[in-house]
């Protein structure tokens, strides 16, 4: 056995992405929704790395850097929204914020 087939890496990325997706649409607590989003972004980054290493090119790792930038931006904005949600509604239920008032 010399090396890992590319499909195995992509299947791992697909499994992680699907788990994050299931968490995203099952949960109502915003902390868990944000964590599931992180899992999904991480799975996408894993797919980029698998592709980059399979072809032996550094573009995969460069794209990983951009995905990690996106994840940091998304986490900071999402956590600010989470703090606002907790402050205004005293709850982390995303359904509490389904009315557009102020």
């Amino acid at each position: 056995m010399n090396g890992i087939p590319m499909e195995h890496g992509l299947v791992l990325a697909a499994i992680l992405f699907t788990l994050g997706f299931a968490g995203l649409i099952c949960r109502r607590n915003m902390v868990f929704v944000l964590m599931s989003l992180e899992v999904m972004l991480n799975a996408a980054a894993l797919a980029f790395i698998v592709g980059g290493t399979a072809w032996g090119q550094p573009e995969g790792q460069a794209m990983f850097l951009l995905v990690i930038t996106l994840a940091a931006a998304e986490a900071s904005v999402g956590l600010a929204l989470l703090i606002q949600l907790h402050h205004r509604f005293k709850s982390l239920d995303v359904d509490a914020a389904n009315r557009m008032r102020g």
Partner: peptide, 27 residues
């Protein structure tokens, strides 16, 4: 629904013929 999505993704991956091996060469 997520399980159906996963099955679809994996079936698509296996029907493709990428067939590349990752030898672990360090970038």
């Amino acid at each position: 629904l997520a399980a159906v999505l996963l099955v679809t993704l994996i079936a698509t991956l296996w029907s493709g013929d990428a067939g590349r091996m990752i030898s672990g060469e360090v970038l």
